[in-house]
């Protein structure tokens, strides 16, 4: 049995009166690819952000690699160094060239020498197929290229887990493929991944486990084949019904 990397226990999150997460338990093992599915506004992104504590849960515990990140006095900056995150809106640093976007975490967070960091950054950008865009600024890249730089930026930190928060939702349809391709390659290389996405084909092809959420709770989870072919709950069937067109 492989090592457990992430364990969430009884995660709740409220904003004022509204409770977005109503008690979530989730465990992710090494090299596992978990895809969070569900209608919009059901707390998938919030849950993802609880894993690296960008959103602090109101209740519950988050363990990453055996460390309880919700414990008092945890050095959260240190813990985040190896939790890669990719955002829907890319969030590339607008004043830095592609290569510096990837290198800055190495130099400013991990203390790697600049020359070494640039070399590593170049390798990571080549890995996502952008070896010829090193010196371009984010404003000069397409959405798909920006997202691949963002993936390279996270990969350069040698993450134990990659968290993807709707990485293709802000992209034009013709640019989605190039990002999913990079993500699939990562999964095949054994990267542990937790993805929030609406790309059903990707979920079915790449995930080891589907977690279906609605209304702040996990409604159903299972292997992609189980989930897509024989959903156990009515709510999952309804949800999948809306995507029928994608499976023709």
């Amino acid at each position: 049995m492989s090592k457990e990397i992430i364990r969430l226990e009884g995660i709740k999150k409220s904003y004022g009166q509204s409770e977005v997460l109503k008690g979530i338990d989730l465990s992710v093992k090494e090299s596992e690819v978990v895809v969070l599915l569900g209608p919009s506004g059901t707390g998938k992104s919030t849950l993802l952000r609880c894993i690296n504590m960008l959103t602090v849960p109101t209740e519950g515990h988050v363990w990453v690699d055996g460390q309880d990140l919700t414990a008092p006095k945890v050095n959260i900056n240190k813990a985040r160094e190896h939790l890669g995150m990719v955002f829907q809106e890319f969030n590339l640093f607008a004043h830095l060239k592609a290569i510096d976007n990837v290198a800055i975490g190495l130099t400013k967070v991990l203390g790697v020498k600049r020359a070494d960091a640039l070399e590593r950054a170049k390798k990571e950008l080549e890995r996502v197929g952008l070896g010829d865009k090193l010196d371009l600024y984010p404003g000069q890249l397409s959405g798909g290229q920006k997202q691949r730089v963002a993936i390279a930026r996270a990969l350069a930190m040698d993450p134990e887990v990659m968290l993807f928060d709707e990485p293709t939702s802000a992209l034009d349809p013709e640019l989605i493929g190039e990002v999913l391709e990079v993500m699939q390659k990562l999964a095949q290389e054994g990267m542990t991944m937790v993805c929030v996405t609406h790309e059903m084909h990707f979920a079915r092809r790449v995930a080891n486990r589907i977690v279906f959420m609605e209304g702040g709770v996990i409604v159903e989870e299972g292997s992609p084949d189980e989930f897509f072919d024989h959903p156990k709950t009515e709510r999952a069937r309804q949800f999948l019904g809306k995507f029928n067109g994608q499976f023709d």
Binding site: L54, K78, N91, F93, G105, V109, L110, A150, A154, M157
Partner: peptide
């Protein structure tokens, strides 16, 4: 978004 991405990389708010 810029602050969030920087924090996610492990930078402190000040950094």
């Amino acid at each position: 978004g810029q602050m969030m991405a920087a924090r996610a990389l492990g930078m402190s708010q000040f950094k």
